[in-house]
Amino acid sequence: MILLETHELTKRFGGLVAMDALDIEIEEGAIHGLIGPNGAGKSTFFNLVTGVLAPTSGKVVYDGRDITKSRPHQVAAMGIGRTFQLNPLFGDFTVFDNVATAHHLNPGSSVPSIYFNTKKHRENEAWVRKNTEEILEFLNLSRVKDELAKNLPHGYQKILGVARALAIKPRLLMLDEPLGGMNPEEIAFSIGAISQLRDRGITVLVVEHNMQVLSILDHVTVISFGAKIFDGTPEEVRRDKTVIETYFGGDDYE
């Protein structure tokens, strides 16, 4: 089943075409890679899908529903979780509170029930604490759960971004360069964690420059200047001439 698809998705910033009539289909349960050189429009794609940016034309369909005009918080409520390339955090919260607060929609208690601390809300809170502990355990963050997020080393902060996105119980998780700035050890751990997400039934869309992720991808879309130049399996990508030229040809990606 197709979980997310776009039809001729286009975004112009003045004269610049950041997204050029992109058609993409993301299969439910897959780890889908979106790759392309810097400035290709990958982050723009994230922002278009999650409603941060409004497309110039085209549409975004999620789970059979047109979500092109949805606002970011509505998109989150539909089960699309995301991280950000520059990885902003709730820096003044502890790691634990970053993830606990991110349970905002899950399981969700009404404002009056929160304010008057009803029995239902207390049960929710207990569930939130338990689930937070589980997420932190899964991503190996339990050890630093009482640290302020802003004091964490960079690699931990990136993983915290994923933990936070998991708290919304996403069906589709979109990761924008999750390995950026990580050391080899953290990269190996994160790749393992991402592939486990698929086993948990979460569909993952991952933007990454680091070619080590190719090993866990089920499907790859390559874009350049906002347009799709290739779509296929990781093996096909490795063999494709145009991709190798435009993408792996640069000095950056040996």
Binding site: P72, G81, R82, F84, F90, F93, H104, R164
Partner: peptide, 15 residues
């Protein structure tokens, strides 16, 4: 308080 720290992140968790 999530809104004061990062409105973008807050929106991404459904606020």
């Amino acid at each position: 308080r999530t809104l004061s720290q990062s409105p973008e992140v807050a929106a991404s968790i459904g606020v």
